[in-house]
Design a protein around this nucleic acid. Structure first.
Lengths: 226, 226
DNA sequence: GTCTATACCACGATAGAC
DNA sequence: GTCTATCGTGGTATAGAC
């Protein structure tokens, strides 16, 4: 076992399965892609999924962990970097938003590693009917969200906590939907398709929209409820 | 057939199927709910769905049409009413948004007719992997979107068309996500559950957030791209 | 430890009797 | 309109080959 086997890296089957799953789940959804199609595309045996992951659901979980854990770690690191630069002063809200949003868009840009597929898949998954998946996503995001919530509380000290939570919720929704629904824009009103792939421009558009929404003045009814 | 049959209204089987489908699709998704479960919950025969609708997909289409057509008609009527009141002057952006958003929340409030189930299901469907469903939703929304886009163009004459389309896209995303993902708020940061059902308060929160985002000043990069 | 062949039950859809 | 039988396909479990 410890002999040289340069041709076949360890866990190659695992990786092949994960890569094929990412693409097919994005195209046809979780329940829409059969294990038979998935394994044949990955070039592995039907039972390999069950051996390596245990079940289809466990495969889905592994798929999300593989990309989401590094992504959220990068988000937290980016926030820490900004806070260090600021030297104790609170950050501006739009800088915080940009740090969060940017990570998703960065992954969309590298068409090489299939990151684009994953991001679209991720955006779709927040509203998955299957509860275990939603719970998993929530768990994977929880530490990051806590950090960003704290940063936003410092950036917007006069915002009631509850209103801030709701606005973060809206923000999260806009981001996930934008990443997931790539063609509905065209269905609604038509837009130049080439723009959809300009991550830098999209980052500016999103940040401007979200920062304005997040820092909007409070309505009377909302302020009373706080 | 034309004799009096007060006990059993016409198309009762159809209605029973649609009602059961609405609830089960919301709970388990389209592919996640079996026809066997659906028909047994509806108290009809397994083959009845195929007889009345032709297929599972056709059932889904009928399900959306039943609720979405009146809902969008109400949206257009509401906009026409506001425009008549304004007597030719352009409407304010937040009034337009409130008219659009309000219709969804109105349907969420009547727990009686199962509207809440439908709205959650609808919010989830914009990001459905199955393309025919997305196309259907796009078609059903198209006339309404056109009307609202025109109204917003009048309300925001200095906004580049393309930026407006993107912002409407963001807006649509926030709305659909908010309606679909009822429990993720709690997963992320925790919020008082009773608030999630106060449609009036939610309408205020949403309108404030979206109006601010929609009317946000343009970034340089975005202005140059226009 | 990795992988394959195969068997098992539930699913969606359909045809035909009633 | 309803029911039953049936077909092809889905996810999963396992026994055994390498």
């Amino acid at each position: 076992m410890t002999t040289l086997r340069a041709v076949k890296p360890p866990h190659e089957t695992r990786t092949r399965i994960l890569d094929a799953a990412e693409e097919l789940f994005m195209l046809h959804g979780f329940e829409g892609t059969s294990m038979r199609l998935l394994t044949s595309k990955a070039g592995v045996n039907l039972a390999a999924v069950n051996y390596h992951f245990g079940s289809k659901d466990a495969l889905i979980e592994a798929l999300f962990r593989r990309r989401l854990d590094p992504m959220n770690a990068a988000r937290i690191a980016e926030l820490a970097r900004l806070e260090e630069e600021a030297n104790g002063r609170p950050l501006a809200a739009d800088a915080i938003i940009r740090a969060f949003v940017g990570q998703s868009l960065r992954h969309m840009e590298d068409t090489k590693s299939g990151g684009r597929n994953f991001i679209r898949l991720l955006g779709r998954t927040y509203t998955e009917p299957t509860k275990p998946i939603r719970v998993l996503i929530g768990q994977l995001y929880a530490p990051t969200m806590e950090r960003y919530k704290n940063a936003l509380e410092r950036a917007l000290p006069h915002m009631p906590r509850e209103e801030l939570v709701w606005r973060m919720h809206f923000m999260f929704g806009t981001l996930s939907y934008t990443l997931a629904a790539t063609d509905v824009v065209q269905l609604i009103a038509g837009c130049k398709p080439e723009d959809r792939h300009d991550a830098r421009l999209l980052e500016d558009r999103l940040t401007a929209f979200l920062a304005a929404g997040l820092t909007a003045p409070l309505k009377h009814a909302v302020r009373k409820a706080a």
